[in-house]
Write a protein that binds this DNA or RNA. Structure first.
Length: 424
RNA sequence: GGAGGGAUGGCAGAGUGGUUGAAUGCACCGGUCUUGAAAACCGGCAUGGGUUUACGCCCAUCCAGGGUUCGAAUCCCUGUCCCUCCGCCA
């Protein structure tokens, strides 16, 4: 959600940032509506003032024992005009809100220009690629007899996976490991949150009203969360947080559900793009002046778990055309996948600035201050569990026996097992 | 699922149709007093919006959205949340 005042004062800047995302400038249209609305509002308020004044007279006349029917008739007449103005005001306000809530966030100044993902900019690379090329996770997993797409399809259709045995356990181990690092070393508080949420929560984080088709909706008024960013960020919705209690850092391990409506035919092999996957998410809520530093910190938190897993990765900053709706700036972390001989996204870390905070009315207040400010919210995968499993399978594959070595840091979570192999 | 009760300022809590944006207490801020602090006393203390060069004036807001009325925190309808009892249930 945008601040109409900002648009009033900086219409050209506003249009320029939208243009960087490939969107037409809308400030003129919005400001015209805004001006109309204010004109209507002023007229309406004058009438309301008059009505209040006359209505009070009725009380005074009646108290004095007089006859107030003339005044009553006068005010009753006024109400027709007022109703009309009220409708106009409502319609204009709604039209403005629709436009403001469907426009993406303003970009940070240092987001590189670009039309799409090809123009994202690599900012660092970590780790030595030891397996430049190899079988992909689907082949490895199926040969192990622990990754079954047919059985999953039998009950659920495409884009679902059934893991079993060592790989099912490894998925759980990865999640546990991530959570322990974020809670134990990075200062995040573990949260177990609802997976079903209502409209207003999704509106708050920006998935609604524009991206309903990417989500699964229940027959009740609930939606399945596409990421635990939704429940974690909505913790502070409608709250005024003491600034001394910031930053607030939350992490959760949850399934995520996505319809993948726009992804037909994309990544159809394997478990890279699924309707359901597990993810460990991080969310930070900060005071406005702290979000940029927190963004860097959070990105490092995500990188840290990959480093401990010894998965080679690179970090890129998304260009203007690829940055998501709610984000002001986004870093993607991409893990090396030998099966694809390329880096693929395993984490996305975004600073949403006050964009979500405005939508969910999440504010903070410094001690002794009266004035509240919108908090800044950030979210990042820490990291996608399903994709981390893919990365481990492919980077730790042993061609000699088809098994998968267990990364050192996961061994405690795997009961000390050193390698996942087919049980003979 | 059935029956009932509730939602008021940062918190607690009055207020059932007419100067109620809202008593009172606590908290908070400023001051007096004090070596300092506490206590006591005095004063201040909601938010959003419109309008104005400005002082200010005005409008809206007592969970949310509709409605009744000349006038609504107060009456009616719908929704949300919380509580109690009954039923069901991992």
């Amino acid at each position: 959600m945008h601040d109409i005042k900002y648009i009033r004062e900086n219409p050209n800047d506003f249009d320029a940032t939208m243009a960087r995302r490939g969107l037409d400038g809308m400030s003129a249209e919005i400001l015209a509506l805004d001006e109309d609305r204010r004109a209507v509002q002023t007229t309406l308020q004058e009438l309301q003032a008059k009505r209040n004044e006359e209505s009070q007279k009725v009380g005074e006349i009646k108290k004095a024992g007089g006859n107030a029917s003339d005044v009553i008739r006068l005010v009753a007449e006024m109400k027709k005009d007022m109703a009309k103005l009220e409708d106009q005001e409502r319609e204009l306000a709604f039209a403005i809100k629709v436009r403001l809530s469907e426009l993406p966030n303003i970009l940070a100044g240092d987001v590189p220009d670009g039309a799409g993902e090809d123009e994202n900019v690599e900012i660092r690379k970590w780790g030595e690629v030891k397996v430049p090329k190899g079988p992909d996770h689907a082949e490895i997993g199926e040969k192990l007899g622990m990754m079954d797409f047919e059985t999953a399809a039998k009950m659920s259709g495409s884009r679902f996976t059934l893991l079993s045995g060592g790989l099912a356990r490894m998925e759980r181990a990865i999640a546990q490991f991530f959570l322990d690092i974020h809670t134990g070393e990075h200062g995040y508080t573990e949260v177990s949150a609802p997976l079903l949420v209502r409209d207003n929560a999704l509106y708050g984080t920006g998935q609604l009203p524009k991206f309903a088709e990417d989500l699964f909706k229940c027959t009740t008024d609930h939606w399945l969360i596409p990421t635990s960013e939704v429940p974690l960020t909505n913790i502070v919705a409608e709250m005024i947080v003491d600034e001394e209690d910031l930053p607030r850092r939350y992490t959760a391990f949850t399934p995520c559900f996505r319809s993948e409506a726009g992804a037909a035919g994309k990544d159809t092999r394997g478990m890279l793009r699924q309707h359901q996957f597990y993810k460990v998410e991080m969310v930070s809520v900060t005071a406005p002046e702290d979000s940029e530093a927190e963004h860097e910190r959070m990105t490092q938190c995500a990188e840290a778990v990959l480093q401990k897993l010894e998965i080679p990765f690179r970090t890129i900053v998304l260009c203007s055309g690829d940055t998501g709706f709610g984000a002001r700036k986004t870093y993607d972390i991409e893990a090396w996948l030998p099966g694809q001989e390329t880096y693929r996204e395993i984490s996305s870390v975004s600073n949403c600035w006050d964009f979500q905070a405005r939508r969910m009315n999440a504010r903070c207040r410094a001690k002794g201050e009266k004035q509240t400010r919108f908090v800044h919210t950030l979210n990042g995968s820490g990291v996608a569990v399903g994709r981390a499993l893919i990365a481990v399978i492919e980077n730790y594959h042993d061609p000699s026996d088809g098994g998968v070595w267990v990364p050192e840091v996961l061994k405690p979570y795997m009961g000390g097992v050193g390698k996942v192999v087919t049980s003979a």
